[in-house]
């Protein structure tokens, strides 16, 4: 396997210190000082020296990946089961950390074995690490900004609210039924409310309530979720639509 690491530290011969004969030699064989290309014989030139991963290794990695997939699903289901059965709520952060750690472990196996990075040129690993650093900076600093709008001045915080109201007024509807009309249909309310109003118009209050109950009615009302606590349920946020919690979420 050729190793280009050495290419850079190859000591350059200094023609200034050579005798005339040495210098002529040197000029006649320009590559002689570059042995990792030409001195090591021809066998290294055709990719035969590259690492061949054994089938056993590949299958073992596949097994590991499937195991971790099952594990991450199981942990997610277990959390819901624990919440339902024991009324025990595990903080969201734990949930996120477990899922992301497992995903990272899986990713490491894919990158190291399937993508041969374990045996590959270190430079490729460096490319990957730099990229991940860039990704981290991007997501981290952006999220930090949008999560810290009220950090210093309260008066300014009132003016800067991350995200929007979700009020959605003023959109031109793009649904199929709306497209047929001559006048563009402008959505007067939030998109969610608009969809609901349209359904009520279509089915009538009673039928709609029945349908809604079919969708969500079997869920027990759960305590409202806080940013620190996962609301691990099968269903959806009960009554959230009617509460007066501002749409900004955690404000």
């Amino acid at each position: 396997m050729s190793d280009h690491k050495h290419e850079h530290d190859a000591k350059r011969p200094d023609p200034a210190t050579m005798t005339e004969a040495e210098y002529r030699d040197y000029m006649a064989d320009p590559h002689a000082f570059h042995p990792e290309h030409h001195g090591a014989g021809e066998h290294a030139h055709d990719g035969e020296g590259h690492h061949v991963t054994s089938l056993f290794q590949l299958r073992a990695v596949l097994g590991i990946l499937i195991f971790f997939t099952v594990l991450t699903v199981a942990s997610s289901r277990a959390e819901i089961w624990v919440a339902d059965t024991f009324d025990l709520y595990i903080p969201t952060l734990v949930n996120v950390l477990i899922a992301m750690s497992i995903a990272t472990i899986k990713a490491v196996f894919v990158v190291a074995i399937f993508m041969h990075l374990k045996w590959d040129n270190r430079l490729n690993l460096l490319v990957l690490l730099f990229t991940l650093m860039g990704v981290g900076l991007f997501i981290g600093l952006t999220a930090m900004d949008l999560g810290n709008r009220k950090e210093f001045y309260d008066w300014k915080g009132d003016q800067i609210v991350a995200g929007g109201t979700g009020g959605s007024a003023g959109f031109v509807a793009l649904t199929r039924s709306a497209r047929g009309k001559d006048e563009p249909e402008v959505i007067p309310t939030s998109l969610v409310e608009h969809a609901r109003n349209r359904a009520i118009q279509k089915y009538g209050e009673a039928v709609f309530a029945e349908k809604l109950a079919q969708k969500h009615g079997h869920h027990d009302p759960m305590p409202a979720r806080t940013p620190n606590r996962s609301r691990a349920t099968e269903g959806l946020t009960a009554d959230l639509f009617d509460t007066t919690v501002p749409a900004g979420g955690d404000h």
């Binding site: 952006t142 900004d145 949008l146 991350a162 995200g163 929007g164 109201t165 979700g166 009020g167 749409a247």
Partner: peptide, 15 residues
Amino acid sequence: FDPRIGGDPVLFQHF
């Protein structure tokens, strides 16, 4: 990037 749906125009500027 649209506050009417809950997005953030400043997010666009970050991007």
